[in-house]
Amino acid sequence: MIWVNIILCGIITFLIRFIPLSGIMPRELPLKIKNTFKYIPLAVLTPIIFNGLSIFENNQYFIFENFKLYSALIAVFVALITNNIFATISLGMLSFLIMNNV
């Protein structure tokens, strides 16, 4: 049964990615729709960031001793200054390990 689930999920995932590029969709999209595209990566990936920082769980905010949140803020700062992906991830992770183990 696990194999069936894996294969069905694989087919569905591929179709989700393929249908927009398959030619079924209109080849020229209205300008208003095109203008929304620039917001898509921000709008769908930001929730993954917020969720990964455990800010709000079980109806409670978790801010003051949330080292993940502080590390993320440091990563935001590094990203703004350096615009370097490697530096952002490395310094964010390093700051978390230091805070969590001091």
């Binding site: 921000l42 990936l45 615009n83 991830i89």
Partner: peptide, 21 residues
């Protein structure tokens, strides 16, 4: 367990998205 590898996921997306803001 102390490595908290799952934190790398939001850090990766922060690195990607900040230049888009």
């Amino acid at each position: 367990e102390f490595l908290e590898l799952q934190l790398i996921i939001p850090l990766t997306f922060i690195a990607i998205l900040i230049p888009m803001i």
